[in-house]
C-alpha cells in the first residue's frame, strides 16, 4: 500500500484580536491509496483546518500556515502559491473536497449543470456538450432521479441530501485521488446521512479514490473508516486502525469519547453514558503541557510537569501521545 498524501508537522495559526490561535499545532498524518481515513475530534479541535490547510484554502490573513509539509505526487503542496496554477491543478482534480453545509455550499444563482460542468471543462478540458453529457452521467451515478431534466435546476430546487449528492458528483467528476469529506453528513437527517455515507463508500470503491472523513461522529467512522486519527486541541492524540481505536483505545480522550456514545449490545448495567467533563481548551495561550490534562481522570504528576508528549508507537500502526498507560490504571 503506497502513501498518497503525507503531511508532516503541519502548523496553522490564526491571528485574532484576542491573540494567536494555534488551531493546528504540529499535526502529521498520511493517507494511503484506496483507504478510508477518519479524522475525529470535537468542534474546534482543528480537524477541518488541517484539511483546508493541505488544500491551501485557509483565508490568509487571519490564518497562516506556519510550518509543515504535505507531500503529494512527489511535490510539497504547501510550497505552492495558494492561488497559483500548480495548486489549482490539484484542487478539484487530484484532491477534491465536500463541505459540511449542503444548503450553502452550492452557488444559489448558478444552475446545477454549470456547477458540475465547470470542473470537467477546467480540469478535463471537455467541451460544453461533452461536459453536459458527463454531468448527467455523474448525477445519475450519485442517485439523482431524472438527472437530464434536473440539470438546469437551481440548488434551491433540491433538498439538502440531494444537494450533498450533487456535491459528491462534483467532487468525483475529475476522478480525484483523494476525496476529503468535511463533516459531510452533519447537516442532514440520520436516514440521509446513512445513504450519503453508503454512496460515498460505493463511489470511492468504484473510482479507486481514498476518502478522508472529517467528523465529530464516532459512529460514522466506526462503520466506514479503515484508519482513524483522533484530534484534540490542534494535535493528534491517538491514531491507529479502526480496531485499535475502538477495541483498544489508549488515550484518555479516546476512551472518554467512546464512553460518551451509545453502542449496540450494551448490557443494561453499563448502558449509562459518561460525558467527558469540562470544556475543550481555549486555543489562545495554551499551556505547554497536555491540553487534555484539566479534563483527564487518569492524569499523573508527570503530566503536569512535562510538555505535551509526542506520539509514540504502541502497536504496528497504533500511536498514542500520553504518559499514562491507561491499561494499567483501569
Amino acid at each position: 500500500m503506497s502513501v498518497l498524501l503525507d503531511v508532516k508537522n503541519l502548523r496553522t495559526h490564526f491571528h485574532t484580536h484576542r491573540g494567536l490561535v494555534k488551531a493546528v499545532d504540529g499535526v502529521s498524518f498520511h493517507i494511503n491509496e484506496k483507504e478510508i481515513v477518519g479524522l475525529v475530534g470535537e468542534s474546534g479541535c482543528g480537524k477541518s483546518v488541517s484539511m483546508l490547510s493541505v488544500m491551501q484554502l485557509i483565508a490568509i490573513p487571519p490564518g497562516k500556515i506556519v510550518s509543515g509539509s504535505a507531500m503529494f505526487d512527489g511535490h510539497d503542496l504547501l510550497k505552492y502559491k495558494p492561488k497559483g496554477d500548480e495548486m489549482r491543478a490539484i484542487r478539484g482534480a487530484k484532491i477534491a473536497m465536500i463541505f459540511q453545509e449542503p444548503m450553502t455550499s452550492l452557488n444559489p444563482v448558478l444552475t446545477i449543470a454549470r456547477q458540475v460542468t465547470e470542473t470537467l471543462e477546467l480540469h478535463l478540458k471537455m467541451d460544453t456538450q461533452t461536459a453536459r453529457k458527463r454531468a448527467v452521467e455523474l448525477l445519475k451515478l450519485v442517485g439523482i432521479p431524472e438527472a437530464e431534466s434536473r440539470l438546469d435546476n437551481y440548488p434551491h430546487q433540491f433538498s439538502g441530501g440531494m444537494r450533498q449528492r450533487v456535491m459528491i458528483a462534483i467532487a468525483l467528476s475529475c476522478n480525484p485521488k483523494i476525496l476529503i469529506a468535511d463533516e459531510p453528513t452533519t447537516a442532514v437527517d440520520v436516514t440521509t446521512q446513512a445513504q450519503l455515507l453508503e454512496l460515498m463508500q460505493e463511489m470511492v470503491n468504484r473510482f479507486n479514490t481514498s476518502l478522508v472523513i472529517v467528523t465529530h461522529n464516532l459512529g460514522v467512522v466506526a462503520r466506514y473508516a479503515d484508519r482513524i486519527y483522533v484530534m484534540y486541541a490542534g494535535r493528534i492524540v491517538e491514531s491507529g486502525l479502526s480496531e485499535d481505536i475502538f477495541l483498544r483505545p489508549l488515550h484518555p480522550y479516546t476512551i472518554g469519547l467512546l464512553k460518551s456514545v451509545p453502542q449496540l449490545g450494551q448490557t443494561k448495567s453499563d448502558r449509562e453514558l459518561v460525558p467527558i467533563s469540562g470544556l475543550p481548551p481555549n486555543l489562545i495561550d495554551m499551556p505547554q503541557n497536555c491540553a487534555f490534562l484539566p479534563r483527564c481522570s487518569y492524569h499523573k504528576e508527570r503530566c503536569r510537569l512535562e510538555p505535551w508528549p509526542e506520539l509514540h508507537a504502541v502497536g504496528a500502526q497504533h500511536y498514542v501521545s500520553c504518559y499514562v498507560d491507561t491499561r494499567e490504571t483501569s
Binding site: L57, R91, L110
Partner: peptide, 26 residues
C-alpha cells in the same frame, strides 16, 4: 465569505472565474 465561494476555490477555479461567475452575480 460564503460557503459556495470556498467550494469554488476547492474546485481549482481561477480567481477571475470565481469573481466573475460566482461572486459578482450574487
Amino acid at each position: 465569505s460564503q460557503d459556495y465561494i470556498r467550494t469554488a476555490w476547492a474546485k481549482g477555479l481561477r480567481e477571475r472565474v470565481i469573481v466573475l461567475r460566482h461572486t459578482i452575480k450574487n
